[in-house]
């Protein structure tokens, strides 16, 4: 996928709950929120574990960065597409090995080669000085 020069990418908005996630991405790391009492990963991050209702058992752990494509859409026309990105482009929903899902883009692959179930691993894309995004590329099964 390619960006259209001159149109800035919308940045994520940051709050206390998701700041560690985006700070890690800026450092080329993928971290996930986990409740150590329940041993369950949560995405998006929250102030309270929705399982055990604890507010002090949530911690950030390193993700394997590995997973597979769970679903995807392919923007085939300018209608309804993001002007900052050249069509066609695909957006994928990745299910990480930890069980949580993230929306992202694939690199080094054409939209029509994308398949549900494809094994992938995380890579990082420094879009600009103040924006880094996590993306995924195909890996051997």
């Amino acid at each position: 996928m390619e960006y259209v020069p001159g149109i800035p990418i919308l940045k994520p908005s940051i709050d206390a709950d998701n700041k560690p996630f985006w700070d890690a991405v800026a450092n080329h790391e993928l971290v996930l929120q986990k409740c150590r009492a329940c041993d369950v990963y949560h995405q998006p991050p929250r102030p309270m574990c929705p399982e055990c209702k604890s507010m002090d058992t949530l911690e950030w752990v390193q993700s394997s960065g590995r997973g597979q494509i769970y679903s995807y859409v392919n923007f085939t026309t300018d209608r309804m597409a993001y002007p900052a990105m050249k069509v066609p482009y695909a957006v994928v929903l990745i299910e990480l090995d930890e069980g949580v899902r993230l929306v992202s883009n694939m690199i080094d692959i054409e939209p029509d080669e994308i398949e549900i179930g494809m094994p992938v691993e995380v890579v990082f894309d420094d879009i600009s000085e103040d924006l880094t995004l996590y993306k995924f590329k195909k890996r051997a099964a």
């Binding site: 994520p12 908005s13 993001y82 957006v91 992202s104």
Partner: peptide, 17 residues
């Protein structure tokens, strides 16, 4: 310049908007 809500922040930067 940024996604209008926290959870859209996980989608909009990837062109899913």
């Amino acid at each position: 310049s940024e996604a209008p809500t926290l959870h859209y922040g996980y989608f909009f930067p990837f062109g899913l908007l």
